[in-house]
Design a protein around this nucleic acid. Structure first.
Lengths: 347, 347
DNA sequence: CACGCCGCTTGAAACATTTCAATCCCACCC
DNA sequence: GGGTGGGATTGAAATGTTTCAAGCGGCGTG
């Protein structure tokens, strides 16, 4: 409820408030930061002046004086994938609890955009950075560490170490997905995913292969259908390749490296007249909301998305504030969520 | 490539760079801001010093001096809806062109979170705010205007005026959706959407009713199935209510106020054994990527999502920099994207 | 030779806030 | 009445950057 217009475009400062309330500027600052120390009468006078002038603290001046901002940042890999949005929500709740702002950036999988964002965040003097990097071993990430800026890798690991990370056990995720399919009676299964440069993809495939071997299945019956990205489009195109296989080699089930691929594959299957799960069972990964919302609800390997974010935020805050901080690789256990897309046991 | 460790935790400042390069701090600033004015030899010396120290501009000090930050902000309504993410991308490209940062916030449909975000952004002294508000007539929005802070409403209008806005013609959107269904031979149609407090919903319904009447269809054959939100879940529950109608009243097609509802409805229809589009045709609104990715690709009313964002950013920048700025209500024309969910002509 | 100009560099001021030592004032106690 | 303690307030310093008027030299011109 501000009663005065901002005169001459400049926003009112503590100095203006002090003048209006007839106190020194130190007192105004005390009202803002240590209200207990100032007498009730004065405090009320100052508060009234602030309201009348429409005073708003200038965050840059605070920061300058404090030497650090009161913000965290999350640089996400793909804003188009709801998975990352959910992670961001987890981070935000934790940031809010610590009374910090969160800057959410999106690299869209492009390394140069990522670098640009990081540069900006460095200039902003954020307290810490959470990132799902395009390349976990990129030099600009090592730079961050050398600068002593707290940072945590989310949903990725780097060989280098020197920082915390938070992720799900992807090998295990691959295992439970494929074990579920074997349970359902499938003896020929496709793994849909790529490129191999993504650690996640490699590990999920590795888990799949491990459990496949443990059940004594012939190696050639776990068919890898590589994709160029983890997108709906690539899932569709994998579906075409799958349909093109000679029928004696055609899998009865597919395990997709993420849910977007699975949705694309599902779409292709349905338009091609395949019944899901009878003709083709599908398992995704991440368990985004759209997996449960698909026409044939998708079985998926759930990652605790929000929890991932919250933990990452906790770790970066610990690194920022606790001198005795030691780096930690937090690993979560994925869980299979069975839905209609793998609904029936195959004989 | 920084060769020195940051000593004593403080980041190096222009002063440190000046000392290292043996010049005054004004010269360092010149190198940063007006490189042409400083001699090549000096410039190189300074640049080397900056690289060695790992100097990074302190944005808060810049801001403090400049009186304004170099950032825009977008407060989105629902981060879980990909529509808003696409709008944000459009804004970001425009912000990047203007060499501004973009802060993306998410109110999650909660007014108090929105207010909190706005408060923070005010403290940050952002140059302008783009917002898809929870309530276009909320008092904290009027506050912004009174403060003289440039702001633009995205995908919403307010009665009050006093600011720019950018949106699609929702009445027209409703018209083309329903006209398409009439074209396809449907004579009993459901409108799925709510709550009525959302202007969009009202206008889309209004357009639907208008065209329905113009074609001389009986009013009672356009059935409104109200929902409590624009979510997948609500779409599902609308599907249940729809299936529960006596068959002589049951519509052969549904027009959903957005794509999330449509996806939920589609899911319910498929699990209930209805064929889409033969038993039930479905039209959504927004044309998010997941609409095209659905098992039965969804016909939808496309909004130029990125364009919306870019235009909004342009307007807010104009307001921020052009003293002769006049407020503008930019309206875009929606377009029907026909897909399989309304694929066949009904006889 | 003196003057002016030009290219480059400098130093100080300004931005808004927080902090902290110093001061002030009042009441209370001896 | 003087001293003391303590609560409330003050004023100055410090944060890192940008800007701008002023200074400095050297060179060319009259």
């Amino acid at each position: 409820m501000l009663t005065q217009q901002p005169r001459n475009g400049r926003a009112p400062s503590v100095k203006d408030v002090a003048a209006a309330a007839g106190v020194s500027l130190g007192t105004v600052s005390n009202v803002l930061n240590r209200p207990a120390v100032v007498s009730a009468a004065t405090r009320e006078r100052v508060e009234r002046a602030m309201a009348e002038l429409g005073f708003v603290r200038n965050e840059s001046a605070r920061q300058l004086r404090a030497g650090t901002s009161r913000a965290l940042a999350y640089v996400m890999l793909d804003g188009g994938n709801p998975f990352f949005h959910d992670v961001a929500e987890g981070i935000e709740t934790a940031a809010e609890d610590a009374d910090l702002s969160l800057f959410v950036c999106n690299s869209s999988g492009r390394s140069e955009r990522e670098a640009k964002h990081l540069d900006r965040l460095l200039q902003q003097r954020v307290q810490g950075i959470l990132i799902t990097p395009v390349d976990p071993d990129a030099p600009h990430l090592a730079d961050l560490a050398q600068r002593g800026l707290p940072f945590v890798m989310v949903d990725r690991f780097s060989r280098a170490g020197g920082h915390c990370s938070v992720a799900v056990d992807d090998v295990l995720g691959g295992r439970i997905a494929v074990e579920h399919l074997i349970d359902r009676g499938h003896r020929r299964v496709a793994f849909v995913g790529g490129p191999a440069s993504i650690g996640q993809v490699r590990e999920r495939l590795q888990g799949a292969r491990a459990v496949w071997a443990e059940f004594g299945m012939p190696e050639e019956d776990l068919i890898h259908l590589p994709t160029e990205a983890l997108t709906v489009n690539e899932g569709r195109s994998a579906g075409e390749r799958l349909a093109g296989l000679p029928s004696r080699r055609r899998p009865t089930a597919a395990f997709c490296a993420n849910d977007l691929l699975a949705l694309g594959l599902l779409q292709h299957a349905v338009t091609a007249g395949l019944r899901v799960p009878d003709d083709l069972a599908i398992v995704g990964f991440d368990d985004i909301d759209f997996a449960a919302a698909a026409a044939v609800p998708l079985t998926s390997v759930r990652q605790p998305r929000q929890e991932l974010g919250r933990t990452a935020a906790r770790l970066v805050l610990d690194e920022a504030t606790n001198p005795a901080h030691v780096h930690e690789q937090a690993t979560f256990v994925p869980a299979l969520v069975a839905r209609a897309s793998t609904g029936t046991v195959r004989r």
